[in-house]
Amino acid sequence: MLQIQKLTKRFGDKLAVDTANLMIDKPCMIGIIGRSGAGKSTLLRMVNRLAAPTDGAILFEGRDVTALTGHQKRMWQSQCAMIFQQFNLVPRMDVVSNVLHGTLNRRSTLSTLFNLYPADDIHRAIDILERLGIAEHAPKRAEALSGGQQQRVAIARALMQDPKIILADEPIASLDPMNAQTVMQALRRIHEEDGRTVIANLHTLDTARRYCDRVVGMRDGRIVFDGLPEQLTTGVAREIYGASADFSEAATSTEIETLDKSHTGATRPSAATVPAE
Score class of each variant (00 low, 15 high):
residue 232 L to K: 01
residue 222 R to G: 08
residue 151 Q to N: 11
residue 259 L to P: 00
residue 224 V to D: 01
residue 71 H to A: 13
residue 63 R to T: 13
residue 103 T to V: 12
residue 207 T to P: 02
residue 69 T to M: 10
residue 114 F to M: 03
residue 234 T to E: 07
residue 214 R to S: 04
residue 71 H to E: 12
residue 162 D to M: 07
residue 10 R to A: 14
residue 236 V to M: 11
residue 81 A to E: 09
residue 146 S to G: 06
residue 220 D to E: 14
residue 238 R to G: 01
residue 242 G to E: 02
residue 21 N to C: 15
residue 275 P to G: 06
residue 20 A to Y: 05
residue 105 N to R: 10
residue 175 L to H: 04
residue 261 K to Y: 09
residue 117 Y to D: 04
residue 127 D to Q: 12
residue 221 G to C: 08
residue 47 V to L: 13
residue 92 R to A: 14
residue 118 P to T: 08
residue 223 I to E: 00
residue 255 E to R: 13
residue 189 R to P: 06
residue 269 P to F: 06
residue 28 C to Q: 14
residue 277 E to N: 15
residue 182 T to W: 05
residue 119 A to L: 13
residue 84 F to V: 08
residue 97 S to R: 11
residue 257 E to S: 13
residue 117 Y to H: 10
residue 263 H to V: 13
residue 132 L to R: 00
residue 229 P to T: 04
residue 151 Q to H: 08
residue 155 I to Q: 01
residue 272 A to N: 15
residue 165 I to S: 03
residue 205 L to N: 02
residue 40 K to I: 01
residue 277 E to L: 15
residue 216 V to N: 00
residue 93 M to A: 14
residue 261 K to P: 04
residue 98 N to E: 05
residue 140 K to C: 14
residue 251 A to M: 11
residue 10 R to N: 15
residue 99 V to T: 10
residue 217 G to I: 05
residue 194 D to H: 12
residue 129 L to F: 06
residue 15 L to R: 06
residue 122 I to S: 07
residue 110 L to K: 10
residue 46 M to D: 01
residue 254 T to V: 14
residue 119 A to F: 07
residue 215 V to A: 03
residue 130 E to R: 08
residue 244 S to N: 08
residue 163 P to M: 00
residue 202 L to E: 00
residue 134 I to W: 04
residue 36 S to N: 14
residue 242 G to L: 00
residue 85 Q to W: 12
residue 63 R to D: 12
residue 84 F to I: 08
residue 76 W to R: 03
residue 275 P to E: 07
residue 86 Q to C: 12
residue 256 I to W: 04
residue 110 L to I: 06
residue 203 H to F: 09
residue 39 G to V: 00
residue 145 L to T: 02
residue 176 D to M: 03
residue 273 T to F: 04
residue 223 I to S: 07
residue 243 A to I: 04
residue 101 H to W: 02
residue 106 R to Y: 07
residue 270 S to P: 10
residue 81 A to L: 08
residue 10 R to W: 14
residue 252 T to Q: 10
residue 195 G to V: 11
residue 46 M to W: 00
residue 94 D to G: 06
residue 44 L to P: 01
residue 37 G to K: 13
residue 234 T to I: 09
residue 66 T to A: 13
residue 62 G to V: 15
residue 212 C to N: 03
residue 173 A to E: 03
residue 14 K to S: 13
residue 277 E to W: 15
residue 106 R to D: 05
residue 6 K to S: 15
residue 47 V to Q: 02
residue 203 H to L: 06
residue 133 G to V: 05
residue 257 E to F: 10
residue 264 T to A: 13
residue 100 L to Y: 07
residue 232 L to P: 02
residue 126 I to H: 03
residue 1 M to W: 03
residue 194 D to Y: 08
residue 55 D to R: 14
residue 193 E to W: 03
residue 158 A to M: 07
residue 277 E to A: 15
residue 129 L to G: 01
residue 35 R to W: 02
residue 241 Y to K: 05
residue 272 A to T: 15
residue 22 L to K: 09
residue 255 E to Q: 08
residue 5 Q to L: 15
residue 53 P to I: 00
residue 203 H to Q: 03
residue 250 A to S: 13
residue 4 I to P: 06
residue 257 E to D: 11
residue 242 G to W: 03
residue 52 A to M: 13
residue 30 I to G: 00
residue 89 L to M: 12
residue 139 P to I: 14
residue 200 A to Y: 00
residue 205 L to K: 04
residue 25 D to R: 05
residue 45 R to K: 15
residue 133 G to S: 07
residue 115 N to R: 11
residue 188 R to A: 05
residue 220 D to Q: 13
